[in-house]
Write a protein that binds this DNA or RNA. Structure first.
Lengths: 268, 268
DNA sequence: TCTATGCAGATGTCAGGCATTTACACTACC
DNA sequence: GGTAGTGTAAATGCCTGACATCTGCATAGA
């Protein structure tokens, strides 16, 4: 070595052992809090960053919430503030978090791809988002029609039923959730993890675009479109499945003419 | 203020003025090197990070290349190493860069979404990537058939011609480029920036998956598929355009049966 | 020729400091 | 009573300087 000091790593009074996690429950991180002396340890920053990302993704740090301060996090994790800062900065640049000077750091998105998309093209016409969503869902629908497992099909129909029931109940929040769940079932039935991720990102961007969504009574055309989609997938008809996905979005557009970003839009 | 010191920002001997850029040509950064006292300045780290990202995206820092060291970057930009580190860390976490301890920092991807995808699901069956690509391209093809501008159509046919010529020439590299250019033209013709970004990401993932690509003579079916796609888009036939995009991928799959990731695959 | 060694340089981590901004409670004034 | 101004605590932003540790490479040795 080109330089030698009398004290251990981290200068005089090095921290004995990083311990404790950040979330509410102590000692149950992603894969343990922070391991410093593993046989082949990954950089500390990476571990810390991973931990934060897990907290965001798992919902322990919900979107919009203010997370603990840098000093506090550093203390809890037993690492220096610089390390925490680098980790947070990474997630900020990714778009997952957002640091506000003099205030604190807030959670901005759950999905990293969403973060990137939102950061670079915030307005992004709602029509573009809808078209992209339709395209990905159509692709998934085709794949699902070709190769969906029986289990996936069962889930699909269950979700469709739940969606119909939720619509009848009048509970808008429940209806919105059921609707999302149905569409996710379609995407998952494709069996393609890549498309699942891309869809999730686009869907989250859409959520962001139409935050002030007012759920209106859906048109019969829209309701039919949902059923047609499930039917086509179950029948294994690729072309029909793809077309149904597009018809679905078309029905939504017809019910809510688009005029620009953040226009009053309906649930799909 | 709760504490006051006799010296300026950054302790004794603060840097007089950040200057000079990082790239080969001095003084021509993204929008000037680093502006510290703007009327409403964004955080320095953000500016620096933006600058690095631009260098990656513009190709001044090509994929695979080792970028200058942190100390050097800090010196050139006139900021502290901590700031440079935070900026680099952000891009590392995103997947754009990759830091190797004791060695240096390397460029890993041009597209941030690609970086995220590669980081989380590195293996990702080649078939999944192909299907995702086909799905997005099909969606773009449908949109293009509906609303492509005359200019976009002209570009499309030009690229198809160029692709055919490149194939005849036998120059594999040129052929690969021409092929990519054609597909990009299809996607751009959709007029949807969101889909353009997603396609670029997936395409880059594919490049990574089939790095050792050996370009084989394309089957007649594949060549026809390319032409059919252009025809359908020009004719404004949505359904035909979508089907053509899928047929294109199907023809490639037929010519090169997939057995797993990194299987010898052909150019599409 | 092959192997061991040492050096230079890179990233990783830490500690501590001060600057700047913001939210919020408090006070004084109208 | 309501409003504008003020002050303070706490947060992020930025910097300095040091040391640890790893890696690539040139060099000296077997």
């Amino acid at each position: 070595m080109h330089s030698d000091g009398p004290h251990g790593p981290g200068g005089p009074g090095s921290p004995p052992h990083p311990a404790s996690s950040v979330g509410p429950e102590p000692g149950q991180g992603h894969r343990g809090p922070v391991v410093r002396s593993a046989v082949r340890h990954a950089p500390l920053v990476t571990q810390v960053s991973e931990q934060f990302r897990e907290l965001v993704r798992s919902g322990q740090w919900p979107v919009g919430q203010k997370i603990p301060g840098e000093h506090e996090l550093a203390g809890q994790l037993g690492v220096s503030r610089a390390t925490v800062r680098e980790a947070l900065r990474g997630l900020s640049i990714t778009g997952l978090l957002e640091a506000r000077i003099g205030d604190g750091t807030y959670v901005r998105a759950t999905n990293e791809i969403t973060g990137v998309l939102l950061r670079d093209e915030p307005p992004s016409l709602l029509e573009h988002v809808l078209d992209a969503r339709a395209g990905i869902e159509a692709a998934c629908a085709r794949l699902a029609a070709r190769q969906a497992t029986p289990t996936a099909l069962e889930v699909l129909w269950q979700r469709l039923d739940a969606r119909t029931r939720a619509h009848g109940s009048g509970d808008v929040a429940a209806y919105a959730r059921a609707d999302s769940a149905f569409h996710e079932a379609v995407v998952h039935a494709s069996g393609n993890p890549l498309l699942v991720r891309l869809y999730a990102a686009v869907a989250e961007v859409m959520e962001e675009s139409v935050r002030h969504t007012s759920v209106l009574p859906e048109a019969p055309r829209t309701r039919d479109a949902h059923r047609q989609l499930a039917v086509a997938i179950s029948a294994g008809d690729e072309d029909a499945a793809g077309k149904a996905a597009y018809e679905l979005i078309a029905s939504v557009k017809a019910a809510a003419p688009l005029a620009g970003p953040a226009t009053g839009a309906r649930r799909v």
